[in-house]
Structure formats: structure tokens, C-alpha cells
Computed example of a mutant assay.
Amino acid sequence: MKVEARLFDVTTSFFILSAIVYGVWSKEPVGTVALILTGGLSLIVGSYFHFVARRVERRPEDNPDAEISDGAGEVGFFSAGSYWPVTLAASGGVSALALAFWQVWLLVIGLVLVLMSVAGLVFEYHTRPNATD
């Protein structure tokens, strides 16, 4: 997690420095505030990664002397045949179009579809405990 934390430290520094330079050169407050807020959001994520990096064991990505084989093994479970990501993307697209054209009725439908898609994705492999019939 230290690699990710450093990455966000660099982006935070870049956005804050860009905000200072932009604010001095342009004298335009909206862009300066946007760059400062972007740097603040990057700082939040970087702080989270610093917080987590202290509590998890060291990963091969954090060791500069690590070999490729040190990272071998199971990474996680990824569903190869799930259609829920497609439904989530489609419902997000419907919601974005409804928001762009400000069609409130379609936005409500799109948000309901997004919530249903997220629930389907989260609970796709959830099985209830052995229930007695």
C-alpha cells in the first residue's frame, strides 16, 4: 500500500502546486478552487492508503528487491460469466442521459435500475444458510 500512498502524495503535490501557479497567473478563482479541491480529494485518498499501509503486512509491491514470483498465487475471485456489470453500465448510462437532458422521470427509473444492478452484483454469489423446509 505504500506504493499507492506515494502515488497519491505525488498527485496531491502536483495539484496543489498547479493551483498556486494557476492562481497567480490567471487571477481566476473558480479554476484555482477546483484545483485545490482536487488536491484535497487526492490527499484524502493518500491519507487512507497511508493509514492502511501501517496495518497490513508488507506486500511484494512494496519491496524493491522482490521477484515476480513473490506475487504469485491467488489474487481474488472474479466472476467470468456475470452479466451484472453490463446491466450496471447500461443503467448508469440511462441515468447519465436522463441527467444530461434533465428528464426527471427517466432519472428516477435509471437510479432504481442502478440500485437493482448493484444489489444483483453484490449478492450474485450470496446463498442463504441451510434453511429447514
Score class of each variant (00 low, 15 high):
M1V: 11
M1P: 15
M1R: 08
K2F: 01
E4K: 09
L7W: 04
F8A: 00
V10S: 10
V10E: 11
V10K: 14
T12S: 06
S13A: 13
F14T: 11
F15P: 01
F15S: 01
F15C: 06
I16R: 08
L17Q: 11
I20T: 09
I20Q: 07
I20Y: 05
Y22Q: 09
Y22E: 10
Y22H: 13
G23F: 03
G23I: 01
W25Q: 15
W25S: 15
S26C: 08
S26N: 13
S26H: 11
S26T: 15
P29M: 04
V30Y: 12
V30N: 07
V30E: 08
G31C: 06
V33H: 02
A34L: 14
A34Y: 09
L35E: 03
I36N: 04
I36K: 04
I36G: 10
I36R: 03
L37I: 15
L37Y: 07
T38S: 15
G39F: 05
G40N: 07
G40C: 10
L41R: 01
S42K: 03
L43D: 05
I44W: 14
G46L: 04
G46Q: 05
Y48C: 07
A53L: 00
A53K: 04
R58M: 13
R59W: 02
P60C: 02
E61M: 06
N63E: 10
P64T: 05
S69K: 14
D70E: 15
V75T: 09
G76T: 10
G76Q: 02
F77Y: 14
F78W: 10
F78D: 06
A80I: 03
S82P: 07
Y83A: 09
V86M: 09
T87K: 11
L88H: 04
A89H: 06
A89K: 09
A90M: 12
G92N: 10
G92Q: 09
V94T: 10
V94G: 00
L97V: 11
A98I: 03
L99P: 00
W105E: 15
L106G: 04
L107P: 02
V108N: 00
V112C: 11
L113T: 02
M116I: 13
S117C: 04
S117W: 00
V118N: 01
A119V: 07
A119I: 06
G120H: 03
L121G: 04
L121D: 00
F123N: 08
F123M: 06
F123G: 04
H126F: 15
H126K: 13
H126Y: 15
T127W: 06
T127C: 05
R128G: 01
R128S: 06
N130K: 14
D133P: 14
D133N: 12
